[in-house]
Amino acid sequence: MIDVMLYLGAFLLLCGSAFTLLAAIGILRLPDLYTRMHAASKAGAVGGGMVLLAVALVCFEGAVALRAIIGVLFLLLTTPVSAHLLARASHRAGYIPNKITVLDEIQTIKKSQSGP
């Protein structure tokens, strides 16, 4: 039983680390701020959450496991909020998306309002 938990925890730990690594690769390879945000917010949250779940699985202690799970919930709640805040702040401050962006409806709406 303990062995099964350990194998499962090791699997979760490896998956979480792999996702975190992929988030870091994404933040380096993707072309602009807004696409990078996808990598950091999703892969980052899943990676960190999986590692915390692995800790919860292998600690064999109720209080510690509960704390780790609350940590996961906290991570899942805060990551989208901070990504959203950063995206909103950057767009309002005037950081424009990369040229390969096919459509930017915030820009077009602002232009049509300030037009006539």
């Binding site: 870091a24 950091a40 949250a45 915390l52 991570l75 990551t79």
Partner: peptide
């Protein structure tokens, strides 16, 4: 954004 990811990696 990279700093934000850095804290997640550190976590």
């Amino acid at each position: 954004l990279a700093l934000d990811l850095l804290t997640v990696v550190a976590l």
